[in-house]
């Protein structure tokens, strides 16, 4: 019934003198309904978010001010002590560099390939749905299964990738021990999973671009590449921003891939010398292996801030990039 009143024309009812008070009360209700209902409708999301998102976020912040062991009943307040420790913690910086390196190695190729893939899928193909579903398949497959398969492929001694490299006359690569190689291997895993997914999102946006723009440009003599750069790319801007921001958030939280990549099953070390330990993996290790919950909370907050900063930078960069494309 509340919805019915809301559908009545917008202007607020004018109160007439001499009307019975009940009518005034009803007017007031209608007025509140009109003002408050939209908020009520979206409230469930924010309530759930407050419980499972905001509260843990704030509580983690509170916890990060304590020196708290997992089985410790009496945590001691240390203020910003955990954060100061973090600044001097070599392993943390190492894991941050690892994370950024894996992030760059995965996000940049991933989005580039996704846009290219979308452009290909947007051309006239036989059985378009079949092609579209097939690029999504890696995303559907279980992440854990993928992790195990890829860790096997990249095995240093008996892995398939090294076998192929050797047949091609190239040197074997120690995918576990070498820092950059391990990052590349993990990035391949991430890309394998996410490229198709992003390609479909970009494809949806591409299909929403009006055909007449392309036709007009064709009439003006623009080639396919020129049309792609000057029409498709600028009009993809909002979608690209979305894709870049979500993959930034995901890319900086990579956890399962490096965990499963480690030769030692169940290990959180990220390699013998932490050469591919990401920040989330280090956070998990601090919380549940070395059992320092306060310290792990501090890591979580720093990671949160890093993600916000990088997502913002990416947002601005993407806007700029797509803008300049439109000016031409």
């Amino acid at each position: 019934m509340a919805a019915d009143t809301r559908q009545s024309p917008a202007p607020a009812p004018v109160r007439e003198p001499g009307r019975p008070p009940r009518q005034v009360w009803r007017d007031r209700l209608t007025h509140w309904d009109y003002k408050a209902s939209p908020y009520l409708y979206i409230a469930p999301f924010f309530l759930v978010f407050a419980v499972v998102g905001l509260f843990p976020l704030l509580y983690t912040g509170y916890l990060s001010l304590f020196d708290r062991d997992l089985l410790d009943d009496s945590p001691t307040f240390v203020g910003l002590g955990n954060y100061l420790d973090l600044v001097g913690d070599e392993q943390f910086w190492k894991s941050l560099v690892n994370t950024l390196s894996i992030f760059l190695l995965s996000t940049v190729p991933q989005i580039t390939i996704a846009v290219g893939l979308a452009a290909l899928l947007n051309t006239r193909l036989r059985a378009p749905t079949g092609w579209r579903i097939s690029v999504l398949l890696p995303y559907v497959a279980s992440l854990v299964a993928l992790g195990i398969i890829f860790a096997n492929l990249f095995g240093p001694q008996y892995g398939l990738v090294n076998g192929v490299l050797e047949t091609l006359g190239l040197d074997r690569v120690d995918w576990q021990a070498d820092r950059f190689s391990s990052h590349a291997a993990i990035a391949v895993m991430v890309n394998w999973r996410w490229t198709g997914y992003n390609a479909l999102i970009v494809l949806a946006a591409m299909q929403a671009i009006p055909k007449d723009l392309h036709e007009a440009a064709t009439v003006d003599g623009a080639g396919a590449f020129r049309r792609f750069r000057s029409i498709t790319l600028p009009l993809l801007r909002p979608t690209l921003i979305f894709v870049v921001v979500t993959s930034t958030i995901g890319g900086l939280q990579v956890f399962t891939e490096p965990k499963l990549f480690d030769a030692m099953p169940g290990s959180n070390n990220g390699g013998a010398a932490n050469q591919f330990q990401t920040v989330t993996l280090y956070m998990y290790q601090s919380a549940f292996e070395t059992q320092q919950l306060g310290y792990a909370s501090a890591i979580a907050w720093v990671l949160f801030l890093v993600i916000i900063v990088i997502a913002l930078v990416n947002f601005l960069l993407t806007r700029r990039l797509a803008d300049s494309g439109g000016d031409r």
């Binding site: 860790a151 096997n152 095995g155 240093p156 001694q157 008996y158 030692m264 099953p265």
Partner: peptide
Amino acid sequence: TAFSNEWNS
């Protein structure tokens, strides 16, 4: 490394 895939092989 003990219990790794490579160790199994």
